[in-house]
Write a protein that binds this DNA or RNA. Structure first.
Length: 608
DNA sequence: AAAAAAG
């Protein structure tokens, strides 16, 4: 099954016809009896009926992957190597061939090839993390009986299958967020976690979920057309859901835990068929999930784990009613009966308050400074009038080209405020000879995925984007983020610039500022100051021109991305809220400055 | 006010 719709859209018609008749009669290879998830990847002990389409190669592997011969399946089991050479020939190192082989119940190896070809080397380069940059990271955990952090994956011991996948991902040590969040999750605790962009949040919530599903005992799920996932991961954009699904598939490879993705803009039938074949972890955007819930094709009754990625966005004005409906009105077990984990790089107090409705006796965890890998990102602010923005951007791009930074692996991400603005800037850049594409909510899903892929691969090294691309997307080699139009919210700025400076690499963020952005002047100046960035002398002068600037100020203190709102509420008394490293039960693990070990060069870890 | 998310 293709991970992304655009990957398979060309082949989808073929698949539709091929399976439409099958759908009603043999929708899945049913498990007649309960099989523990960690045993599910074993070859079938008795001869299950051969799928009628076994002779047809996977139609969604972008043509050049012919797949193994039909007979390969009957050999049973999973073969990590199968399809590798075809994978490379397919050419896209970012285009995953996708999950489970339709009709064969055989799991396709989701790991990139690293056999010395160009693509392999790129992946290897990506995997090298600069860990030195993350040593002096402040950590704060508050709540009852906070489990202590773990220093190594071995210490965490997620089981053989998961450990193998950690190795395949070339993760050697857990990142700071993982060291703290994973033990908390494994202890069954609810969690609200605030960690730098690009610091490995996806793995932090995926590992405990997968492990929990593998080793947990669950009653057999009902058969039929309704899918009963055990875990639900929600994210605010389709592309982010696709990305989380891709990551989760790597982590769950050969564990027997099945991950399915559901998002809008793509044909729903294909996604429904995947669900029918069985799902343990469902990754979804809210709209499509609600659609499926209303069709009764998905039930949340068996949900044991709920994770909200970019949780503050999920609970902001636009999203909150929809999320509340999913979590509170669609049959999901109530808080306390499920485990809930909220992750984001930013967590405003008022959102924390909303979020606490979904949590039970949770631990609040903050790792890192002001919600960003700030030390790795050089931030610049330039005063540019609206009418000068285009020519100014062109100057920047020309300069990059002359400095040799404008290559296949030096990508530039340009953020604009509106969808129309994105279209028009893309066209203008293109007309002026710059290889640009764009992504925004008015483009078709096919176009969106195509644009992202074209950008990632370096074919169009300039991507003009609205905030649809501001959060969570992990795009290697983004060397420069340009805020052509600044956002109104400083948290959005944090997420945007977080598209660069990832995995320990350095990045540059340039913002075009003018009087229209006055409301951002103060929080931006403060943020830059905290990050040891050079603040232009003229920038704070605009702060006085904005009214109610306090509303946009960062919620946290200087060292942290945010604070546990419970510690500042009225029920808190005493004076040592900011005592640094104190938590309510005295099981202190917080404010560890470089206390968690030293990393050698070239050491890698799980990154977002 | 805009963007995102169902069709």
């Amino acid at each position: 099954m293709a991970t992304s719709w655009a990957d398979s859209v060309a082949a989808s018609e073929k698949v539709e016809t091929q399976f439409s008749s099958e759908q009603a009669y043999q929708p899945r290879l049913a498990r007649p009896t309960y099989v523990p998830p960690h045993l599910r990847s074993r070859p079938p002990s008795s001869g299950s009926p051969a799928p009628p389409s076994a002779a047809t190669p996977a139609a969604n592997d972008r043509g050049s992957y012919g797949g193994p011969p039909a007979g390969a399946r009957s050999a049973g089991g999973f073969r990590p190597d199968v399809g590798r050479s075809g994978y490379v020939a397919a050419g896209g190192w970012n285009g995953r061939s996708g999950g489970w082989d339709r009709g064969r119940d055989r799991e396709v190896n989701p790991f990139p090839d690293t056999d010395g070809t160009e693509q392999g080397l790129i992946e290897q380069e990506n995997a090298v993390i600069n860990f030195d940059a993350y040593e002096d990271i402040p950590v704060e955990a508050t709540g009852d009986n906070v489990p202590p952090p773990a220093n190594t994956f071995a210490e965490i011991d997620l089981g053989d299958a998961l450990n193998l996948n950690i190795q395949r991902c070339k993760y050697v040590r857990p990142t700071p967020i993982q060291r703290h969040a994973i033990p908390i999750s494994l202890a069954g605790r609810d969690l609200m976690a605030c960690a730098q962009t690009g610091s490995g949040k996806t793995a932090a919530f995926c590992f405990p979920i997968i492990s929990g599903i593998m080793y947990g005992q669950y009653v057999q799920r009902p058969r039929g057309r309704t899918a009963y996932p055990l875990a639900l991961i929600l994210s605010p954009t389709r592309e982010l859901s696709i990305q989380i699904h891709e990551e989760a598939r790597k982590f769950s490879y050969q564990t027997g835990v099945k991950v399915v993705v559901a998002y809008g803009g793509a044909p729903i039938n294909q996604q429904l068929r995947e669900l029918e074949r069985g799902v343990d972890i469902l990754v979804a955007t809210p709209g499509r999930l609600v659609d499926m819930l209303e069709r009764a094709r998905v039930s949340l009754q068996m949900i044991k784990y709920l994770a909200l990625d970019e949780a503050d966005r999920m609970l902001d004005m636009g999203f909150e009613p929809q999320i509340r409906k999913i979590v509170e009105q669609m049959g999901m077990p109530t808080r306390g009966l499920r485990q809930t984990m909220l992750f984001s790089a930013t967590f405003p107090k008022e959102i924390q308050r909303l979020a606490s409705d979904f949590l039970s006796n949770y631990i609040y965890l903050t790792v890192g400074r002001v919600g960003s890998s700030t030390d790795l990102i050089v931030q610049r602010v330039e005063y540019v009038n609206e009418s000068d923005k285009r020519s100014h951007l062109m100057d920047l791009l020309h300069a990059q080209r002359e400095n040799g930074v404008h290559g296949k692996h030096a990508l530039t991400l340009v953020f604009v405020e509106t969808k129309r603005g994105a279209d028009s800037l893309e066209n203008w850049l293109y007309a002026n000879g710059f290889p640009a594409t764009s992504i925004h909510g008015d483009r078709s899903q096919q176009e969106r995925e195509l644009a992202l892929r074209s950008f990632k691969s370096g074919r169009t090294p300039i991507l003009v984007a609205t905030d649809v691309a501001a959060r969570g997307l992990d795009i290697p080699h983004v060397a420069h983020v340009v805020n052509f139009d600044l956002p109104n919210d400083i948290d959005d700025y944090v997420h945007r610039i977080g598209r660069t400076g990832r995995a320990g690499k350095t990045g540059l963020a340039t913002a075009f500022f003018n009087e229209n952005n006055s409301s951002l002047a103060r929080p931006l100046a403060e943020l830059m100051q905290e990050a040891n960035q050079e603040v232009p002398v003229w920038l704070p002068r605009y702060a006085s021109r904005s009214h109610g600037g306090g509303r946009n100020r960062r919620s946290g203190g200087s060292r942290f991305g945010g604070r546990d709102f419970r510690r500042e509420s009225s029920f808190n008394r005493g004076t040592d809220y900011y005592g640094g490293g104190y938590n309510s039960t005295g099981h202190g693990i917080s404010a560890g400055y470089g206390a968690y070990g030293v990393y050698g060069a070239g050491v890698t870890s799980a990154w977002e």
